[in-house]
Design a protein around this nucleic acid. Structure first.
Lengths: 225, 225
DNA sequence: TGTACATCAGTGAACGCGCGTTCACTGATGTAC
DNA sequence: TGTACATCAGTGAACGCGCGTTCACTGATGTAC
């Protein structure tokens, strides 16, 4: 009990316990500080408190560590989006907008993850696990789009849900990466990214013929009906 | 005449002539090859054929060179968009869609410029020249949006052109950075990025109440009216 | 419960390398007279 | 037109540094008996 406390930093003398996770965490901190391209293997080792040779027990090289960060990011992203979607409760349009907000919140609150996922240039096609994780996250947006498409009123042709999901994803990603970052590279905006996205989605859905009220807690400055 | 030919590589013995441009070009090649974070000052010097100390005559450090690349990128981007817009000829909607295509074409054909502009993490607020160049490029999209807004039929409330421009920019950038790159980090798509963007813009404009035909050479798979 | 042993996850020293940066320098160019 | 001189844009050698990577090693842990 008590003697454990003074060993917090390094559990046993030699064995770290979960160096792998510690390295991922160190990489996250370094990416947040200096960008996705700006962290080194040696630095991650140092800030995890181990010798420069230690990481080689867990990762072949820097890229494999970066891929681990990205994969963890996709998994957390998926769970955040899933929670926001909440299986379409209380109603599909409200849940849909909530997913958009969750998207932007993730990009803002986990810039290092987001960066590793979307801006690090990691090849997806040579890393099946990463590709799967990425697709599972996108699947949430796609599932939400399916449900929305199914709501199409009689007489309105149903748009392809895949295309719709791709539009929503692209718009969200565009807003997140242009305006939604905490750092200095973020561009100024005369409104919040959330409002910009919500308004864009409303207009887009209206263009598809969906008669969506903006009742669901929206205070975005969209043109009045 | 003839003796000039054998001096192609280095114009005079000592004076390079336009080393500054040569370094920007070298940086572009290196960024295209290894990403925005993956080029070094020394490497740029080497591939421009000068000693490692030479670049210091023209750039304070690596970041200043990168900023030059980005600025040149914004300027070329602006001129490409301006040409595509062609002051709204032959008609505003057709020209608008042409700007979208030009956006994606630029991202695809100048990935190194695009990367330096949007993904290098260069701070805009500490570099006024860069900020101005960036805003001048965006101003094209905004001007096109103004003209489109002015076309609103009677009875349709006019949306804020700035918001509209931000939506279009975000959607374009999202599609370009997720799907529109040549490299391995680009995601697969069941249609061309151009078609995806065109369809998205059409739906968006319809959502704003603009009765736009898709006459202008479009063959995107959008839901039929 | 003890002991022997295999395995595992770390150490730390060492290496070669390329980078960023500086320095005194030098050859080429432009200009005053 | 010729000469002297200032300026400019490059050289190349040198430096300290941190990185990536390897190596034989060693302490801790788990397991067979």
């Amino acid at each position: 009990m008590s003697w454990r406390k003074e060993r917090r930093r390094r559990e046993g003398g030699y064995h770290h316990g979960n160096l792998k996770e510690a390295l991922v965490q160190a990489a996250l901190d370094l990416i947040a500080e200096k960008g996705a391209g700006g962290f080194t293997f040696a630095e991650a080792a140092r800030s995890a408190g181990v010798s420069p040779a230690a990481p080689y027990r867990h990762f072949r090289d820097r890229d494999e560590l970066l891929a681990s960060v990205a994969q963890q990011g996709y998994e957390q992203f998926e769970s955040v989006l899933t929670a926001a979607w909440d299986d379409g409760r209380p109603d599909t349009p409200a849940a849909f907008q909530r997913v958009g907000k969750a998207y932007l919140a993730f990009a803002r609150e986990h810039p290092a993850h987001y960066s590793a996922m979307f801006e690090s240039g990691l090849p997806l096609d040579s890393n099946p696990a990463l590709l799967v994780a990425s697709e599972r996250a996108f699947a949430i947006i796609r599932a939400a789009s399916e449900r929305l498409v199914a709501m199409a009123p009689p007489g309105v042709p149903r748009p392809p849900a895949l295309m719709m999901a791709l539009h929503i994803w692209s718009l969200s990603h565009g807003i997140a990466s242009l305006f939604g970052r905490g750092d200095a590279a973020s561009r100024k905006l005369p409104m919040s990214p959330e409002d910009l996205l919500e308004a864009g989605v409303l207009i887009y859905l209206k263009g598809l013929g969906f008669p969506i009220d903006h009742a669901a807690g929206s205070h975005a400055s969209t043109p009045k009906k």
